[in-house]
């Protein structure tokens, strides 16, 4: 049965309206980034760009540590993702494919730890970092969270679908245990790694509270912390802020559009946590 035309038209109209609302902030960010500061707030508002200037971008690049922050964010994200992937795959493999004493207890502890919110850890972790001398360092931001419980859980779940025969065959062929991990398991894990990479990368790219506390020097701020210093009740730097936002959002949106599937599964996988 074909539904009535009017209901299709209505549905499409609603969807268009929703899309407009969802997309509008992107549009506003983009055109504001090209407006001189004097025109960002002035009434009547330019809903469509009238003047076009790159001065905000120039100011951002030359007068603020924006590029440095960008580098910090990329570095922190990359370091965290690699480390977390390594620990998760190795331990996930250990849990999924070996029987050993204490396995179940440890697994329950790991799973239970997924319930603990970051907020309750910030204060003790910060005090620990002071003692380690890790405040104001990249390792202080990255390492404490590199043991990601969700990663283990995800990998070991994924590996239960892999037949153990493959591993036994590897042993018969003379592979060492580590060799099995490297030669057999890692290649098998490729799809799962894709999902986890997106998940870890997006998580660490969005970190705010932790680097806000750990990073003390402006030159070590990641983007989120750095850009938050542009926002104040007393002084608004929307010109530079919008230019920065565009430069942060465009690469991610481009990545997303080129690999939508991985992104969606990486990000939805993340929410299973907790």
């Amino acid at each position: 049965m074909k539904p009535r035309r009017i209901s299709i038209v209505l549905t499409v109209a609603v969807l268009i309206a929703i899309s407009v609302v969802m997309i509008f902030p992107f549009y506003w960010m983009l055109i504001s980034s090209f407006k001189p500061i004097g025109r960002i707030f002035t009434v009547p508002l330019d809903v469509f760009p009238r003047e076009f200037t790159l001065v905000n971008y120039r100011k951002l690049i030359t007068q603020t540590p924006f590029l440095r922050w960008y580098f910090n964010s990329i570095f922190i994200t990359a370091a965290y993702t690699v480390l977390a992937l390594f620990f998760a795959t190795l331990a996930g493999f250990g849990f999924a494919k070996y029987d050993f004493k204490g396995r179940n207890v440890l697994l329950v502890i790991v799973l239970a730890s997924m319930m603990i919110p970051l907020h309750s850890l910030v204060i003790p972790l910060f005090m620990l970092l002071i003692r380690l001398g890790w405040v104001n360092t990249y390792r202080g931001v990255v390492i404490p969270f590199a043991a990601n419980a969700f990663g283990i859980f995800y990998i070991s779940q994924y590996l239960t679908t892999v037949p153990s025969d493959l591993i036994d065959a590897g042993r018969i062929d003379g592979c060492s245990e580590f060799g099995i991990y490297r030669m057999i398991i890692l290649p098998l894990l490729k799809p799962a790694l894709g999902v986890l990479t997106i998940y870890f990368a997006m998580t660490s790219w969005n970190w705010f509270l932790w680097p806000l506390v750990v990073m003390r020097a402006e030159s070590l701020f990641p983007l989120n912390v750095g850009l938050s210093t542009f926002i104040s009740d007393y002084r608004q730097r929307y010109d530079e802020l919008m230019a920065a936002s565009v430069l942060c959002v465009v690469p991610i949106v481009a990545l997303f559009l080129s690999m939508q599937k991985q992104f969606v599964s990486g990000l939805t996988a993340g929410s299973i946590k907790s």
Partner: peptide, 26 residues
């Protein structure tokens, strides 16, 4: 539908600080 899907999903990619900055402006 793929267009609407993408447009509903795009904000997920924006970090809270940046989204907050744009919201403040609006």
């Amino acid at each position: 539908t793929s267009f609407y899907r993408a447009s509903v999903f795009l904000p997920v990619l924006v970090s809270t600080v940046i989204a907050g900055a744009v919201f403040r402006l609006i």
